[in-house]
């Protein structure tokens, strides 16, 4: 398998890696056209760096690293600017807690909804709902959440890449989960 050996063979790149890279992208950026563009850009950028490949990682890992940087660029562009989507998402959770004492309002209080006791890892239906709920997140929140959970990126790196302060980072991690959890509870019966 070319994916296992540490040599580059651009003649087989599309056959060996295009679907993998596309699936990797579409999970992180839910826009098919943009995902296609990113896969193409990744291969073209990789061609220019072929000389610098040292064979320390597999071809696939090396290509994925290039792609990952391109995805971060997209996150950065998407999450800069007006951030109206953030306002809407903040508004959504405004009533979750009592404004005076911070206690859950009963209408929004988390209740067991069936993910607690059964193993849903890999459950297709649940994954679809999860993806739908992830896509509803504001671009900046999605970027931070994705980088932290899916790629295990260092918090300092995420903060500098996306220009958020560390304290704001934790506020966003918290807010993201509040909306995500509420969305799952609403949609999973």
């Amino acid at each position: 398998m070319s994916a296992e050996s540490n040599q580059l063979d651009p003649h087989t790149w599309v056959k060996s890696h295009a679907d993998y890279l596309y699936a990797y992208t579409i999970k992180r950026i839910s826009d098919e056209e943009q995902a296609k563009d990113l896969v193409q850009e990744t291969f073209l950028a990789a061609l220019e760096k072929v000389d610098r490949f040292e064979g320390k990682s597999s071809e696939r890992t090396w290509l994925t690293a290039i792609l990952k940087n391109k995805i971060i660029d997209v996150y950065r562009k998407k999450s800069s600017g007006l951030r109206k989507d953030v306002q809407a998402a903040e508004h959504e959770q405004e009533d979750f807690f009592d404004h005076d004492d911070g206690h859950w309002r009963s209408a929004y209080a988390p209740q067991a909804f069936g993910i607690e006791d059964v193993d849903h890892l890999g459950n297709k239906e649940f994954n679809n709902i999860l993806q739908m709920c992830l896509q509803k997140l504001p671009a900046l929140w999605m970027a931070i959440f994705t980088m932290k959970h899916m790629d295990d990126a260092d918090t300092t790196l995420i903060c500098s890449e996306l220009k958020v302060t560390p304290s704001n980072f934790w506020v966003i991690i918290h807010r993201t989960k509040l909306n995500l959890r509420a969305c799952l509870q609403r949609n999973w019966e």
Partner: peptide
């Protein structure tokens, strides 16, 4: 949810998006 999100992004499931 954290476990499921990690699983979702790590796995390559059959029927995944293809070009």
């Amino acid at each position: 949810i954290n476990d499921m999100v990690r699983q979702l992004f790590k796995s390559s499931m059959p029927g995944e998006a293809k070009l």
